[in-house]
Structure formats: C-alpha cells, structure tokens
C-alpha cells in the first residue's frame, strides 16, 4: 500500500531523516517506535507532504506521490493526524467532520451559489455519514459543540473520525494515545482494531508499547533518523540494539 524508499530530510545543517525505508501492507497496522527526537513525526510530515523530502520517494499503491502537494496527497487517499491534536476549534465537531468530505459541489463559489439543490443533498448525505462516524466513537451528542471544548482524548477521537470521513486508503496516526487516560487508550485501540478489520490500513507512531504490541502486525524501530530494525513486536523488543537506542546512543 505505502512504500517509503530511502527518504531523507534535513533542516539546514540538521539531518533528521537519513534514508528511511518502510512498507505498510494493505489492511494491516504498521507501527513505528523509537526514542524522542528519532524523526518519527518528521517522517509523517514528509509523507503527508508538509515538508518536501530531500532524497527518496513515496509510493501510494504504486503511484509516486512525492511531487504532489499536501491536499493532492489527501485526495489520493493519504491522510494523517497530528501528535498534538489539531482540531479546528472555532468549527463545531460536526463541521470538522463535514469538512473532510471530498468533491463537494458547494466547495466552489459558483457551485455554492448556483446549485443549491445539489449542495443541500450532499450536505444531508454528509451529515448522515458524519453521524455514523461520531456515533461510533460516542461523540454524536457533542456534534454541535465547538471542537475546542472537547477533552484531549475526545480530540484524538475527533481527528481519527475526521480522517475517516475523507474515505482514505491509509491513515497515518501520530501518537493517538498521547496524553490520553488508560481507559480512553483502550477505547482508541478498539476503534482502530475495528476499522482495520473493516479493511483500513494504518501506520501508527506511538510510545505506548501496550498499544503497539496489541495492534501492530509489523513494527519499525527508528533511531537518529535511521531504520534500526523491523519485525513483529516480539522480535524487535528482543533486539538489544533497540533497548540501547531507547536508553540513549545508537548501536
């Protein structure tokens, strides 16, 4: 599904990614772990298109998406969430979701003004779909609240639902459990597992090892901008290079 080939990225003199390779299989959950500052979020930023990469390329279903800007990658079905939740605070929870619908007549100025019938029909379809997604994570009762008013955990669920509204092929999650209480973590894990069973593909960056262990089929370990190793969760934690990387210093 997603192939990351030899991706490198520097910010000025600071080289953050040094030739990362990664492959996320369709319908699977691929984990990325590594110590703070390993470059995991930067990798997601580059894959999502926030920063251009210096070397390498990114393939989605065999198509090279490297030259595409962020919004076109999203339209290809590649969507990501953020380590620190980025809800659109002044919009309601429902509006946050409705926004993610693609190819809406009313998104063009003339479409919005001249084709009110199509717009109304699409809006109703969108609200029903959003209701389904929000019901699934228990946020429908908050649909008309400002997204700003949600709790940290609810914001994570909102971001996940918003990503789903886009009908993506693959979702990249940056620390979906960060700052979330243990019961809410279980809730988020359950939602992700359910979606995976329905055929969604995920890449998850996470420090919560229980979550990685319970969800991921394949785990990549990154340290100092490089691939350290990969394998099942059991395999990578048995590797002492991984333990040493977490304790500081790369093998």
């Amino acid at each position: 599904m997603l192939h990351i080939e030899n991706v490198g990225k520097s910010f000025g003199a600071l080289t953050v990614l040094r030739g990362i390779n990664l492959e996320a299989a369709a319908g699977r959950i691929t984990g990325i772990i590594g110590p703070n500052g390993a470059g995991k979020s930067t990798l997601l930023n580059v894959v999502g298109g926030l920063f251009p990469n210096d070397t390498g390329r990114i393939l989605l279903d065999g198509t090279d998406v490297t030259p595409l800007p962020m919004h076109e990658r999203a339209r290809c079905g590649l969507v990501r969430t953020f380590q620190i939740s980025r809800e659109l605070g002044e919009l309601t929870v429902l509006e946050n979701l409705m926004l993610a619908r693609q190819a809406q007549t009313g998104e063009a100025v003339l479409g919005a003004l001249l084709r009110p019938g199509s717009v109304a029909r699409e809006e109703r379809a969108a609200v029903l779909e959003a209701k389904g997604l929000l019901d699934n994570v228990g946020l429908w009762r908050l649909a008309d609240q400002s997204a700003r008013a949600l709790s940290g955990g609810q914001k994570k669920l909102l971001e996940l639902s918003r990503a789903l509204m886009l009908k993506p092929k693959i979702i990249l999650l940056d620390e979906p459990a960060a700052g979330v209480s243990p019961p809410m973590r279980l809730e988020i894990s359950k939602v992700i597992r359910g979606l995976c069973q329905d055929g969604m593909t995920f890449v998850i960056v996470e420090h919560d090892m229980d979550m990685i262990a319970s969800l991921c089929d394949q785990v990549y370990v990154m340290a100092e901008g490089k691939n350290l190793t990969s394998g099942t969760f059991g395999e990578v934690v048995a590797d002492d290079r991984v333990v040493r990387a977490y304790l500081g210093g790369v093998a």
Partner: peptide, 22 residues
C-alpha cells in the same frame, strides 16, 4: 456552504485544511 466552511477551516489551521484535501 461547504465553501464557507472550508474558508473558515483555512483561517483556523491551513495545514489541517490541506491534510483534508483542501
């Protein structure tokens, strides 16, 4: 309209708006 919603989203956070295909 969805145009208005997208424009408000751009005001709030343009990065998020583009990750949602805007």
């Amino acid at each position: 309209s969805p145009f208005g919603r997208a424009v408000r989203a751009v005001r709030e956070d343009d990065t998020v708006a583009s990750t949602l295909g805007k």
